[in-house]
Write a protein that binds this DNA or RNA. Sequence first.
DNA 1: TGAATAGTGTCTTTGAGACAATATTGC
DNA 2: GCAATATTGTCTCAAAGACACTATTCA
Lengths: 225, 225
Amino acid sequence: MATSIICTVDVVLLTLHDGDLHAVLLRRERDPFKQAWALPGGYIDPEHDQSAWEAAARLLEQKTGIVSPYLEQLATFSGPARDPRGWSVSVAYYALVPADILPADGEAVKRVPTARLPTLPFDHGNILQTAVSRVRSKSQYSSLPVYLCGERFTLPQLQTVYEAVLGEPVNKVSFRRKVEELGMLEPIEGEMDAGKAHRPAQLYRLRKEFRRRLSVLDRGLNSRS
Amino acid sequence: MATSIICTVDVVLLTLHDGDLHAVLLRRERDPFKQAWALPGGYIDPEHDQSAWEAAARLLEQKTGIVSPYLEQLATFSGPARDPRGWSVSVAYYALVPADILPADGEAVKRVPTARLPTLPFDHGNILQTAVSRVRSKSQYSSLPVYLCGERFTLPQLQTVYEAVLGEPVNKVSFRRKVEELGMLEPIEGEMDAGKAHRPAQLYRLRKEFRRRLSVLDRGLNSRS
DNA sequence: TGAATAGTGTCTTTGAGACAATATTGC
DNA sequence: GCAATATTGTCTCAAAGACACTATTCA
């Protein structure tokens, strides 16, 4: 009989921790690579999943409890050697979530800084690197990083998030102009930092229309790289 | 036994014809959709293919005779309904080739303008649209459209190609500045248009280093969209 | 010489970054 | 008032587009 192909999905779940971009890894419960830290993922279930995207959303929720508002296809990785069980195809996705909805690191879940990744099983290291560069590049001209913030945030906080993702400082005036141009935020009437010894910053939230989609600019944040 | 998933690849082969972007379609020799015009594609063969990319390159060559210098993954399409044979995953690729290496339209191969696509079987219409917008967007900041030119071409010709892909006029001075900045072309000593009643244009070719990869700009060709 | 298109110089406009002035808070 | 950070105004510089001028060919 013809050899059949293993069809899986993998999810790169990204968040911010200590001011740096981190990926969430799970400890594998089964072979291959039992006990190793790896990306959340698993088999597509043709009985229940209506698409690879649904499989990714389902597996992410089953394995981490997280329903991410932003889950997008990254790329597909394939070949005879990436999985010891045989010729495989993995459709990879990436998700961005605010730090506060993640469980603390534990026996089965942990965050690792994307700047210092451990060696990972399968081709998960490659998938993760691809996701990080995709996120970095998309962040230059879109509102993608707002998914790393909670529901309410100030512009200085958001700027810090952009800087963490892009890995370089961002001009404050240009940043505010761009955010204005993107038009996806609305101010909330309360203010924040009532406890800090300086002028409090205005709190903002995403406009309803942008809760699940990006706002995109022509020209980017002009981070020369 | 568990239902197995059908794993295929599809290739969106793009070229220029009569000044417009066209896709190449093949007449299907088998069911499903026997006789219908559809994208070149087929099953991944785990016995021979080392990756989905290799499967795409192999199928493209087998079905059209073309070995494309540029063949890149587009996205993966999946679900229970896109193929009547069952739950399927198709890894889609796109390729750009100069008009002169294509066979003329015939019984089994034809070009269709991407601006007026016929209804296509499977989800090939969707795949094709996705490919066109990807190519358009990449063309704004990279050398991608040079793959639609032959080996030798003039800057005015290249500009026309960009305009066809982008679907809008491009500023001549800016265009030449950008091409200079991309640094991927070198002039050839001979000139062209010796037969035209006006000043002949300098012929250029791709530098060796760029024969198989793109040159990318920060800021794009500034086509406001 | 005239028509036609290639190639270049330069002015104007737009947008990004630098810098700094003003605003608001707790101490 | 002072320290600290938020927010805004404005200047400078770089890049894109507009426009027009020069160059080269054939008829």
